[in-house]
């Protein structure tokens, strides 16, 4: 609490803060087979098949209402698929408890969804302590290390309301990473941020991608998709319209719909 009063500049031991970058991630391989996701009687994602190789980044782009976010929520079964199969490291996960799948898949939300009555450190330590049943001290140690990686160790005692949107989103990323996921899902992670804070979060995500994390990123940041993605998926009306490496998709769109979408957003 008393840290609130100290100066925000990270004056103390700047050398120690560079260690976070050394983290390497063991990304898993994700595959969706003929997934259908429905709201009531209406399929919002239809017959979706997608392979995300271990350690690669797939960006999902598309107009609003295209089912991107629903697709993402289908991957960790926040939205239960109506049909189809989800494979993680070659094994179907639909018959397991959803919780055991979600232990292996981290998710970052547009609205951060941090726990408002917990400090940044407690936000990150909560799940390791109560879901992975680590001793409190160990969970906090991990949380501190993760916060360090996202450049927020000096703010570990702040509550979300005392952090900027960009900082909150970085805490949310640290919170997901603390569970050692094999896959990270990002649901328009920078859409709610002030423009000058967007790059910080995107850089962090690029760092994860570079460190070997498997990522599925729903985004409107075409620059990010172009530079970081190994594969770009263009969705519209609940279906995959085009899939391919970014340079192909962005330079030579094959469909009229993608051309129109790109001309609107670029």
């Amino acid at each position: 609490m008393q840290k609130t009063m100290t100066q925000p500049a990270n004056t103390a031991e700047p050398a120690e803060k560079k260690t976070g970058n050394a983290a390497e991630y063991k990304g898993g391989e994700l595959e969706l087979r003929d997934i259908f996701l429905a709201h009531g009687d209406i399929d919002v994602v239809k017959n979706m098949s997608l392979k995300v190789a271990a350690g690669t980044t797939t960006c999902v782009i598309g107009p609003s209402g295209s089912g991107k976010s629903t697709l993402l929520r289908g991957i960790n079964r926040l939205h239960e698929p109506r049909r189809g199969d989800i494979l993680l490291d070659g094994r179907s996960v639909l018959r397991d408890k959803p919780e055991s799948l979600r232990l292996r898949i981290g998710m970052v939300f547009q609205q951060f969804n941090l726990f408002p009555d917990h400090t940044a450190l407690e936000n990150v330590a909560l799940a390791p302590q109560h879901v992975k049943r680590m001793p409190k001290g160990r969970a906090r140690e991990i949380a501190r290390a993760r916060l360090c990686e996202v450049g927020l160790d000096s703010r570990s005692d702040h509550r979300p309301r005392d952090l900027s949107g960009g900082q909150q989103q970085r805490v949310a990323i640290a919170r997901a990473l603390a569970m050692d996921p094999e896959v990270m899902l990002f649901d328009e992670a920078t859409s709610a941020l002030d423009p000058e804070l967007v790059n910080g979060v995107l850089e962090l995500m690029a760092g994860l991608a570079g460190g070997g994390m498997t990522m599925v990123v729903v985004t409107h940041e075409m620059g990010f998709a172009r530079k970081v993605a190994d594969q770009v998926v263009f969705m519209d009306e609940g279906e995959v319209v085009e899939v391919g490496p970014p340079e192909v998709l962005f330079e030579t769109p094959r469909t009229d719909r993608l051309s129109r979408f790109l001309s609107e957003v670029l």
């Binding site: 925000p8 500049a9 990270n10 700047p14 803060k17 560079k18 976070g20 970058n21 360090c148 990686e149 996202v150 450049g151 927020l152 160790d153 000096s154 900027s164 960009g166 900082q167 970085r170 000058e196 804070l197 790059n199 910080g200 850089e203 962090l204 690029a206 760092g207 570079g210």
Partner: peptide, 13 residues
Amino acid sequence: DEVSELSSARDTT
């Protein structure tokens, strides 16, 4: 300020 905060933490990224 925040932009520099992150880059000082991860300046090798």
